[in-house]
Design a protein around this nucleic acid. Structure first.
Lengths: 141, 141
DNA sequence: GCAATTCCTACCTTTTCAGTATGAATTAAA
DNA sequence: TTTAATTCATACTGAAAAGGTAGGAATTGC
């Protein structure tokens, strides 16, 4: 899993969508203003969110986006992996150029980084969009 | 905590040092060959490892580096934070430019990213250098 | 003295992030 | 039916950072 601000923006935008989900389609202009993210950038992000079926779009005036599923069913991990192209977790799998090219079984940190990745993933799997909007407070602990 | 290949290289190099710790000072040339990391890059990394008292150096011919502590006492987190300048966890604390500048308490993802950071940190706190060298196998789950 | 090493610092190249720019297609509403 | 609000699509750009090079100085065992 890759982690960038883009992923964070996506989460923010989705949370915004969840928060106002009863107002019909939410335009990116609205989100842009509320979350302070450039409109054009949001557009790019939403293209991907749509491709992954996390949102659906309504075109034309009064259009916008709506969540595909209820907020309590949307995992943060899905949002992030939708916009931050998965490949490369900062590991050594980058096809044999550098990294794990020593004969075999070398690269002593390989397993470690793999496990970290799983760790981060499972962290974001446990959190749902709903957890972010309710009282703006996270799951405790 | 920031995660880059540099941090991974540092861990690899330290693991190498642990593996050959009974051979006296290990030269960066050796590590460079075994781990396939450029010598000059290793030099930069080791300057920092030394600053953080993770290794000590022996100058001159037949010189090299040795671990400051036994491998079972060295946390991976210390290695990584030694070389990857801590600041910026990819969160919103970047002084009010963008990000958490909305009045107050906004930025719905703030807590989430904070918690992730703690998660990653505690992951690397639990793993010791020793865990990497023994059988090249990680602590089980 | 010489070769092997650490130390130091400046530079360079490539990639990626984050964001702009531009324009088209679609549609509600005036 | 025109206009304004929107999504859709794609190409470009600027800045920063990652990853690494280059060159030389200082130290020390042999």
């Amino acid at each position: 899993m890759k982690l960038t601000n883009k992923g964070r923006y996506a989460v923010m935008a989705m949370a915004d969508l969840a928060q106002f989900k009863d107002n019909g389609p939410i335009s990116l202009t609205d989100i842009s203003l509320r979350q302070n993210i450039s409109l054009a950038y949001l557009e790019q992000i939403f293209i991907k969110l749509k491709q992954e079926n996390l949102v659906k779009s309504v075109r034309g005036a009064k259009g916008g986006y709506v969540l595909e599923s209820p907020p309590e069913e949307i995992k943060i991990s899905n949002i992030i992996s939708a916009v931050d192209e998965k490949i490369k977790t900062l590991n050594c799998k980058k096809e044999s150029k550098k990294g794990c090219n020593n004969k075999s079984s070398k690269c002593i940190t390989h397993n470690l980084w793999d496990q970290l990745d799983q760790h981060i993933n499972s962290f974001f799997e446990k959190v749902k969009l709903q957890d972010l909007v309710k009282k703006n407070q996270m799951v405790d602990r």
